[in-house]
């Protein structure tokens, strides 16, 4: 059964323990950063930062809010990056993780064009570069452990488990406190559904979640074209052969 993580934004205290735990487990170096006008750092996920907590200030129901939300690869159920990859460097594991294999990758960066969440990052500063992204700690999951970020979360914001069960948990929380939560589970249907699910007490568009993604799985966008390929491969040559046969016979008659 596919695994998932439920992120309850109303519980996050913005400690960024998940960010540190991720760096430790994946042995990612620290980044030189500058003051951005916010407590969050670095400015975005990057080749050396798979996950990052965003800090958002705003107004909701005439109340000031300060919210924190963790960003990383959403591990789509039908990932755009996997369908885009021509060498199967990106792979969807049965349990949920979308993984990357640098030994297959040719560095074309089509996965970056395809990903609706702009997740895969490329090592532009290296002579032998790789794509870098969260791999859902698939190595930890293989030995029955939860992802490093979930393990370290002190506030109960992150919950790891079966995706189906997490959807039930999310629905129960919204049902129990309908005035507190937004009635939407982000990731239940977005881009055909993602392994990472978010619930929040502030509307997702106010937090800067991408809201133009739709619910159709991304691989479907190129499916029609790819289905047409074998048809064209049979129809066009036979048509051309027929025309050239008729034309050349006519020329001979003249």
């Amino acid at each position: 059964m596919p695994k998932g993580v439920l992120v309850d934004l109303s519980r996050c205290v913005g400690c960024r323990g998940c960010q540190v735990a991720c760096k430790q487990w994946n042995q990612l170096p620290a980044e030189q950063t500058t003051w951005q006008g916010s407590y969050e750092n670095p400015p975005d996920i990057s080749p050396n930062t798979y996950t990052k907590v965003r800090f958002v200030e705003g107004n909701h129901r005439e109340q000031f809010f300060w919210r924190f939300y963790k960003t990383q690869c959403k591990h789509c159920l039908e990932p755009a990056c996997v369908s885009a990859c021509l060498v199967k460097a990106m792979e969807k594991k049965p349990g949920g993780p979308v993984t990357y294999d640098e030994h297959r990758c040719m560095g074309c960066r089509y996965c970056m064009i395809a990903c609706p969440f702009n997740t895969p990052k490329f090592e532009y500063d290296k002579a032998i570069p790789r794509i870098r992204k969260c791999q859902f700690c698939f190595d930890r999951q293989e030995v029955g452990r939860q992802p490093a970020c979930v393990q370290t979360c002190p506030s109960g914001t992150l919950k790891f488990g079966e995706r189906n069960e997490l959807l039930d948990v999310a629905k129960i929380r919204i049902y129990k406190e309908p005035n507190k939560y937004v009635h939407h589970i982000y990731g239940e249907h977005e881009a055909g559904g993602t392994s990472w699910l978010y619930i929040s007490d502030v509307p997702f568009e106010k937090l800067g979640f991408p809201t133009n993604i739709g619910t159709a799985p991304y691989p479907g966008l190129t499916k029609d074209f790819l289905y047409a390929v074998p048809i064209i491969f049979i129809a066009v040559p036979s048509l051309l052969l027929g025309i050239s046969y008729i034309k050349n016979r006519r020329n001979e008659d003249k």
């Binding site: 996997v82 369908s83 885009a84 990859c85 021509l86 060498v87 199967k88 460097a89 640098e102 030994h103 297959r104 990758c105 040719m106 560095g107 074309c108 960066r109 089509y110 490329f122 090592e123 032998i128 570069p129 790789r130 691989p219 190129t222 074209f225 790819l226 390929v229």
Partner: peptide, 27 residues
Amino acid sequence: DLGRPWNIINPIIGNAFGLSSVLFLVA
């Protein structure tokens, strides 16, 4: 433009065919 151009042989020799990719077809 390829980051790892030596792997361009992968879609040709067939150790990993990304058949769902338009780029595979184009290549």
